[in-house]
């Protein structure tokens, strides 16, 4: 099983099924990770772009939730769109991702996320998303 500091708490069934865990929640945005397994493999020897996209989206959502919690906001979010750049082939090893809330407004948030493997300075993929912020 996973180490004590890693958790799937708060992650949806899709992320759990892919083995995604929150591994470091100490920074401004959580770092999440996806161990390599058959469910995330694309062409032989490489990750599937859709699985990388899933990891990026989970990182983005985790970053927004943390930003909202810091404002004691109970707002919910709705994704409007996403653009994913695939920059390097994802290899068959653990992949990490972290989101960054570039701007949090009253009605929308601009968020980006990076995914990397061995070296955070050499991302394999990045994503840019827009989310609607909705208060009940």
């Amino acid at each position: 099983m996973m180490a004590d500091n890693k958790t799937q708490s708060g992650l949806p069934p899709y992320a759990r099924a892919l083995g995604i865990v929150i591994s470091d929640n100490s920074g401004p945005a959580p770092v999440i990770e996806m161990p390599f397994n058959d469910k995330v493999q694309g062409r032989p020897g490489y990750l599937h772009g859709g699985a990388i996209s899933g990891l990026l989206e989970m990182a983005a959502v985790a970053a927004i939730h943390k930003a909202l919690a810091e404002r004691s906001s109970d707002a919910s979010i709705k994704q409007v769109n996403v653009t994913v750049d695939f920059m390097r082939g994802g290899l068959t090893k653990t992949t990490y991702a972290a989101g960054h809330v570039v701007r949090m407004g009253r009605t929308m948030a601009n968020v980006e996320a990076l995914a990397w493997q061995d070296d955070r300075e050499k991302p394999i993929s990045r994503a840019q998303m827009h989310y609607l912020i909705t208060t009940q």
Binding site: P12, A15, G49, G50, S53, G54, E57, V82, V84
Partner: peptide, 10 residues
């Protein structure tokens, strides 16, 4: 999950 739709369209 929206990423399921990404994988499908990819």
């Amino acid at each position: 999950a929206s990423a399921v739709v990404i994988s499908l369209l990819d």
